[in-house]
Design a binder for these strands. Structure first.
Lengths: 347, 347
DNA sequence: CTGAAAGCGCTTACAG
DNA sequence: CTGAAAGCGCTTACAG
């Protein structure tokens, strides 16, 4: 059974295709009466405009391409996408998701006219990204970056520096002296920013960042384990700040293996506030990343760009609150035994 | 700068649009020489066929709609999508992802011609799903179900029954007698199947399933905690099997609070093999869900359907291996301290 | 406020 | 093996 077309709607209500099309698109200069006639016919026939015909004749495709780096899918992408979809669905937009070698796929998506805009998780491979961005600008297709910001692009970022800085201050309140920082892959923007913010916070409290030890992992739990061991060989630390929660977990596993108690012997903190942190023993002190808000904000920015609004660069930095639990040595009066609802449901 | 069109490619190589179009689509009856001429022109101009024009004139849209229930995003969706994308990108297909009220969105996606096929996570709301499936069949748009199978639809499922049954047998080897099953929401297919399989396994080993206690949660960690408490009030159990890992975690948290040791006092097992299970103390015995394979298999089935192949119903059930660690009382010689790579990267 | 007509960029019988 | 022409379903100046 074929879909009805504008033609048939027009016949149904005794008007022309042009008129039907007009009421379909914002009813500019159409008699209210006529609008109603058309709408009745549309309802009666169960008419839906064909997306391709629409896009081909100059309209928008109604879809936004979301490009995320997919090597090692990250569960937080779920939350990010949730935020993106929340806004997209409200605006009647569709999401074209691409996580596999998206740098290669993006130009095709662009040239084939499949997306009205792009939301891109900018991370490494700066050169290749640059080329993509230039191309997008050439075509005047709007795009917003999530993560690593660039001066001349719209971007939504998380306050890595501020979060780490707050953690440093908290460490200072505990009067920790011998501190270990476990970073992600060397050169990774997020990790670098967190290290920077952490050092900043330390010096603000009169501590010399140079006395701090630094080892590196790759954000995975096992790498945290090994980075902790490497740090351990440089001497005993009172406190460890890992650039993400999973490495913090790895560090805890190592300390436990060595018979050290957390936080009595060594305090540990992470970054992300992943769902499991509150169930660790002790519950992990960390920094919360607002993933859902990141998605919402990025898509809202996209909506504004699509509306052809201002040329002012959008540069937003979302706050990253400190979440103090017990692994730093604080007394945790929080939700363990567990709160009624998970923030993140896993099955 | 505008994209080149077939017209321009045709002019460039001195041929007609028809011919160019032919080499674009499988080069049926075109002189090899000509093919080459056209390809050169395409390369020279950096030509990409417009997706909408193509779809409008009878071709495929090249996109598959993936519908997942989004209320409470589940991290395992990341892994499922990874599998789907792996195959999709290999086949040059795009993924239109929808997780928000997809039952309402699906008809629009269908009628607007946005997808050549649908991959749908069928779970609850049977009636509404049925209507959607009928509609899809009416339009002859192929779709494959992931999860709950239906006789007259193509589907890829996970062996819930078999996995739970294997767990029951394992419990029998431990000679557990007083057993508690913690289910998901009552009536939830996955949970029901796991309960069924578990009972099956017990009776196969000469144990009477009727002696087992059952309490229910909603798959979240806190609900596992409370379900464990509810079970506790029915007497002491030697072993607990939770319908997923997060509830198993909740159960462990409750037992710990009560001063009971796992597995010495109470053995605990879960289902899913989520990333965190191996880092729990003790590492959790569970059943592995092959999420990536689920995605791969579903998309591969879609490819076959798109190729217009056989009308035989596709009904696949993927195996769910038992993962024996320490929480059941077995000696775990596995990867803790952690293995070099996470199966699931979290930040 | 409404309609007839051209055009968006492709594909596919139909001729040759 | 190749080309001229019609058509996919819509939108948008251009007239009126």
């Amino acid at each position: 059974m074929k879909n009805p077309t504008v033609e048939e709607v027009a016949r149904e209500c005794g008007l022309s295709r042009a008129t039907v099309s007009r009421v379909l698109n914002g009813a500019s200069r159409v008699k209210p009466q006529t609008v109603e006639r058309v709408q009745r016919a549309i309802a009666k026939l169960g008419y839906h405009p064909n997306a391709h015909a629409r896009a081909l004749s100059g309209g928008p495709s109604g879809t936004i391409a979301v490009l995320l780096r997919g090597v090692n899918w990250k569960p937080y992408y779920s939350t990010l996408l949730e935020g993106i979809e929340e806004v997209a669905s409200r605006e009647g937009l569709y999401v074209l998701l691409r996580t596999r070698d998206y740098l290669a796929a993006a130009p095709r998506i662009l040239e084939e006219g499949r997306a009205d805009g792009f939301i891109i998780r900018n991370m490494d491979q700066g050169e290749a990204h640059r080329r993509l961005f230039t191309r997008l600008k050439g075509k005047e297709v709007p795009f917003v970056l999530v993560g690593d910001p660039l001066d001349d692009c719209h971007s939504i970022t998380i306050d890595n520096v501020g979060g780490a800085r707050a953690m440093a201050r908290h460490f200072a309140e505990h009067s920790f002296r011998r501190i270990l920082f476990i970073g992600g892959p060397e050169g990774h923007v997020d990790s670098t920013d967190r290290l920077y913010g952490f050092k900043l916070g330390l010096s603000e409290r009169g501590l010399d960042p140079a006395t701090m030890n630094v080892t590196y992992g790759d954000f995975s739990t096992p790498s945290g384990f090994h980075a902790m061991r490497a740090g351990f060989s440089k001497g005993l630390h009172e406190a460890v700040f890992a650039a993400n929660d999973r490495m913090a977990l790895g560090a805890i596993l190592y300390l436990r293996q060595e018979g050290l108690r957390v936080p009595e012997d060594v305090a540990v903190a992470g970054f992300d506030d992943s769902f499991f942190t509150e169930y660790l023993s002790p519950p992990l002190t960390t920094v919360r990343q607002p993933f859902r808000e990141l998605g919402v904000t990025a898509m809202e920015a996209m909506i504004r760009l699509l509306a052809g609004a201002p040329t002012r660069r959008i540069h937003m930095i979302l706050p990253t609150p400190l979440v103090v639990r017990a692994s730093c040595g604080c007394r945790y009066t929080g939700h363990n035994p567990p709160i009624p609802e998970d923030r993140l449901v896993m099955s």
